[in-house]
Amino acid sequence: MRVTETWYLTLSALLFTVGFVGLLVRRNPLVMFMSLELMLNAVNISFVAFANKLDDIAGQTAVFFVLVVAAAEVVVGLSIVVAVMRRRPSITADDLRSLKG
């Protein structure tokens, strides 16, 4: 059985859904952050699969940019999470509710 692009696209859609649902149901900021990374990586698989199918380099180039930007986001995101955790250890997203209305 040949593994075609469709398999990869399905995998990418599944990963994206896992990340999406994970972000909505998990309440730990770190796990929410990991779910976001999962979504970004699903996008990478999708870009590479399409690039392979279209025989076009642009999709693979896009992956480099997504990777680099995701790395920058991790740096910034983790620093914010650490700043929050320092103030309130064991915080969950539900505890962050001093701002509402």
């Binding site: 994206f16 990340g19 972000l23 900021p29 929410m32 952050f33 976001l36 979504m39 970004l40 996008v43 986001e73 910034v76 995101g77 914010i80 999470v81 700043a83 929050v84 103030r87 997203a93 962050l96 001093s98 701002l99």
Partner: peptide, 18 residues
């Protein structure tokens, strides 16, 4: 409050870009 503002903005912002 500012931490919360940053965390919410960051999570929603990356969610949107994904």
């Amino acid at each position: 409050k500012s931490n919360e503002a940053g965390l919410k903005y960051m999570l929603m912002g990356i969610f949107a870009s994904a």
